[in-house]
Design a protein around this nucleic acid. Structure first.
Length: 908
DNA sequence: ATACATTGTCATCGG
DNA sequence: CTCCGATGACAATGT
């Protein structure tokens, strides 16, 4: 019972914190008076405080608040934290400035709209909402993608529609791994090499500083809430200590942050001190706030949402990503830059959140669910440290005070992960803003990270995980400005400065081990990758990811124990082996043109190339993970799965597959051969292979999924679209095996069955000579040869069919155009005809008039006027005009002279 | 459940 | 005659 109550309280707390409080604050910022209905739950002073920032009322409210606080209302007697003083001061100043701040309504509204759903999910942790999931996705992202194939999968499946519970379940499963990975990740980051160096740091720092006030304000509010519900903190602390799955239940770690900022044994005292300090300091700070506040504010609202579905920002981010992917250069990038503010806000929010526990709640609760408390805690620390570095001394003091406290107080899990990611993204964004061109050129890695981050934001929570794709994350850590933070954090040190609780957590052997692996992976796996990428104009990135996949195929079964390592190693190894080919085929089906262009044409611009590569990498891992899973399962259950599929398939296939049911053996062959021989030698040697991917439909199918091993790609990707859809159902549908199996085309399966050492792509795309050489150079059985030839034939025919259809479509379109052109011509002709008729009518009319006029002047011999109805004019050859009677036309000629005489006379 | 679209494959034709 | 591409037709699958 008590636990339930506590939970309920927590939820309520979450609800208040994340939902109502922030909403109220934001609304108040907009000048809207909000009645959240907190009165019953909150002390009046707090209520005011929450609503205080509202427009012009702010100062007064704060004053009141101050008074109340001074009265001893809910202040923490024990806490005379100097840090708190600064914090309070800053916060106060910030709050004051709020009055003057104008929050863009549009952004605010958007934020609010997006934000709104949050509270609900918070209430029911068991039923994570989209928002919750978003953070989860982020969390996943944090993990090294390469390390966590599953994460990718989750992301893929983690579409909004998907049941949150499922995800959660998965998350729980991965909880330990996640924690370990997170630790590794951060340790790695800390250890960090950051190519980017301090680059872009200045801007970021400024931004954060600006935003800090907001965060602090929120923190204060949250803290107050926390204090109101004392249970939470203790609970959270215990939770953190336990580092158990319970973490997910906790409200998105505002508590952790709050506690660190202002150690609050006695909430009331703390508040009093803080607020007093703030009031005292208010005056000086205000000045700064105005300018800063504007910026910060613009972002602030958005930032929260970032935790959520990232609506506004996400779009922008997405655009950025796309732009980058497409290799769009400066011009195109302008769009992203323009949007930067929003993005910035979104991205920055994380940083803020780091600083501000209050903000954290905004972040989808999913993060909380992640359970990576240790890691999260770490992240928080890092973030805090980072913020400290960038933020004014105040934060430094607060944060720097005692990392351990932070950990103790925090539900590390809640905010940290998203925050970190956000920070990274923010950093990237900042960098972009600061020096877009420079950034890209100088720090391609940043771009990569940028992409990753964007993906995180862009992609729905689920998709974000994909972005984690590992490589990107690693790059981010290593290269991105964020690395700076990380480095700084390092000092505080996971290992060194970690507070006892955290250290204990970290100490966990498994975690350390994973972490170590991660480090290794990052160091070994990525640097080569980078080099390779540079060498191959960014192709390798994709390849690496693909390689990972391919690797997975081979070792997926064994990987589980130490995924990170295997992945990384795979990446390294295969980086060498796979190169061009996989890349060629890695084009995403969704946007073949874009991807292609970016890939090949964009190579000119480092930024674009990088971005594209990164994107592809992201994608590829994404798919790869699936592939990995598929492969793993395929290998494991190749027999079973194949059998299932084969049920539908013809007997020959069955036979073949049975023969090759060995499945497990095949991967090796494929890997060895295709990778080394086919990919490396042949593919590199044959530029045409690349082109295949471009305009040939054949490749498109596989495009997004760089086939881990050259073989099997065609069908796989053919079904890529299907995959996307299937992903959702994968885990939970019994048909998973089937779908996976279907990933491979029949030929692929057959090839596997017969252990054909060449990839289908190779078989199909090689020139005749090469193909023959290939066949001759390897001892192949009849069946194998026959199959290879069939594969080649079918593959060729497939391409031919595609081309044919394309051509047909072209012809069709051409005919349609022609038809439309003819229609237009017809219309024009009709119009001309109408005009001609009109002219004719006019001429007739005028002629008639002329007739009338002429006859009116003609007279007969008797001098009587001629009736036009009775007579008519005849124009003779010799310019003679004769008036003839209509009745006497027959004899006119005879009388012509007469009439003519008459006329002449007349004329005369 | 149906119609339509897409894609792969086969059979065939012609260069 | 063989090879290979083009294309119609069919089937499977997805939307």
């Amino acid at each position: 019972m008590s636990s339930d109550i506590l939970k309920t309280m927590l939820y309520l707390k979450k609800y208040f914190t994340e939902g109502l409080i922030q909403m109220a604050i934001l609304l108040s910022l907009c000048g809207v008076k909000v009645d959240v209905g907190l009165e019953p739950y909150l002390p009046p002073s707090w209520h005011e405080m929450i609503l205080g920032p509202a427009s012009a009322v702010t100062q007064t409210q704060f004053h009141n608040l101050r008074n109340r606080l001074e009265d001893g209302h809910g202040l923490h007697p024990k806490n005379v934290d100097p840090d708190g003083y600064f914090t309070a001061r800053r916060l106060l100043g910030w709050v004051r400035s709020l009055d003057r701040v104008q929050v863009p309504h549009a952004e605010l509204e958007t934020w609010l709209v997006q934000r709104e759903p949050d509270p609900l999910p918070m209430e029911c942790p068991d039923q994570p909402s989209l928002l919750e999931r978003a953070p989860a996705a982020v969390e996943r992202e944090r993990r090294d993608p390469s390390v966590e194939p599953r994460a990718l999968r989750d992301n893929e499946e983690g579409t909004p529609g998907r049941g949150a519970l499922d995800e959660r379940g998965e998350e729980e499963e991965d909880e330990e791994d996640n924690l370990a990975r997170m630790q590794q990740f951060y340790s790695r980051t800390e250890g960090g090499r950051r190519p980017g160096g301090s680059y872009g740091r200045t801007n970021r720092e400024l931004t954060r500083n600006e935003e800090d006030p907001t965060s602090f304000y929120f923190q204060e509010c949250l803290r107050l809430l926390d204090e109101t519900f004392p249970y939470t903190e203790e609970q959270e602390l215990s939770d953190v200590g336990s580092r158990s799955g319970d973490l997910e239940r906790h409200p998105p770690g505002r508590n952790p942050l709050l506690s660190p900022i202002i150690p609050s044994n006695n909430p009331s005292l703390d508040l009093e001190l803080c607020w007093q300090d703030l009031l005292a300091i208010m005056e000086p700070e205000n000045t700064d706030v105005d300018d800063d506040m504007m910026t910060s504010f613009d972002h602030a609202p958005d930032s929260r949402p970032s935790g959520t579905p990232w609506g506004v920002g996400s779009a922008a981010l997405h655009q950025n990503c796309n732009n980058l992917d497409n290799g769009i250069t400066d011009v195109d990038q302008e769009v992203p830059l323009m949007e930067t503010p929003v993005q910035h806000g979104l991205l920055q929010s994380p940083s803020q959140s780091v600083l501000e526990p209050a903000l954290l709640p905004l972040i989808p609760s999913a993060e909380l669910d992640d359970h990576s408390s240790a890691l999260n805690t770490r992240d928080i620390l890092k973030n805090t440290n980072m913020n400290t570095l960038h933020s004014p001394p105040d934060h430094m003091d607060l944060l720097g005070e005692d990392p351990s406290d932070f950990y103790m107080g925090q539900n590390a899990e809640d905010n940290s992960s998203p925050l970190n990611i956000n920070l990274l993204a923010q950093d990237i964004v900042d960098n972009m803003e600061a020096s877009p061109g420079l950034q890209y050129d100088l720090y391609p890695e940043d771009t990569a990270s940028f992409n990753v981050n964007f993906h995180l934001h862009d992609l729905t929570p689920s998709s974000s995980a994909a972005s984690l794709g590992g490589n990107n994350m690693t790059q981010d850590l290593l290269t991105s400005p964020s690395s700076v933070f990380l480095v700084d954090e390092e000092d505080i040190g996971d290992d060194d400065g970690l507070p006892s609780p955290l250290s204990d957590l970290i100490v966990d052997a498994a975690i350390l081990d994973e972490r170590r692996l991660l480090d290794i992976a990052l160091e070994e796996g990525f640097s080569p990758e980078m080099a390779a990428r540079l060498e191959e104009e960014g192709y390798l990135d994709c390849e690496v990811a693909k390689q990972d996949t391919g690797r997975d195929d081979d070792h997926s079964v064994a990987e589980d124990p130490c995924e990170p390592r295997s992945h990384q190693q795979d990446g390294e190894e295969e980086a060498d082996s796979d190169s061009g080919l996989s890349l060629d085929f890695s084009h995403s089906p969704a946007s073949p043109s874009a991807s292609e262009t970016s890939y090949y044409s964009s190579s000119s611009s480092s930024s674009s190339t990088t971005s594209s590569s990164c994107v592809s990498a992201v994608e590829s891992p994404y798919y790869e993970d699936e592939d990995e899973d598929e492969d793993a399962e395929a290998e494991e259950g190749l027999v079973s799965s194949d059998m299932e599929v084969e049920v539908t398939i013809k007997q020959e296939e069955l036979e073949e597959e049975e023969m090759g049911a060995v499945g497990g053996g095949f991967p090796e062959d494929v890997k060895l051969f295709p990778a080394n021989y086919g990919d490396r030698k042949l593919l590199n040697g044959f530029p045409w292979l690349e082109h295949i991917g471009h305009d040939h439909t054949y490749n498109q199918p596989w495009s997004s999924t760089s086939p881990p091993s050259l073989g099997k790609m065609p069908t796989k990707h053919t079904k890529s679209s299907q995959r996307h859809h299937n992903r959702r159902h994968y885990h939970y549908s019994s048909s998973r095996h089937i779908s996976e199996t279907k990933m491979w085309s029949r030929d692929e399966r057959r090839a596997r069955a017969l252990k054909i050492p060449f990839s289908n792509e190779l078989i199909v795309n090689l020139p005749v000579d090469e193909f023959n050489d290939l066949l001759t150079s390897f001892p192949l059985g009849e069946h194998q040869l026959a199959l290879i030839r069939d594969i080649r034939r079918r593959g060729k025919n497939k391409i031919a069919a595609q081309n044919c259809r394309k051509r047909k479509m072209g012809v069709l379109l051409g005919l349609e155009d022609e038809v439309s052109g003819l229609r237009r011509h017809r219309v024009r002709l009709l119009r001309e005809k109408q005009d001609a008729l009109r002219n004719l009518q006019e001429m007739k009319r005028r002629l008639n008039t002329l007739y009338q006029e002429v006859f009116s002047r003609l007279t007969d011999e008797d001098g009587r006027p001629l009736d036009a109805t009775e007579y008519m004019l005849h124009f003779g050859d010799n310019d003679n005009v004769v008036v003839a009677s209509r009745e006497q036309e027959a004899w006119l000629p005879q009388t012509g002279e007469k009439t003519s005489k008459k006329q002449r006379n007349k004329k005369k």
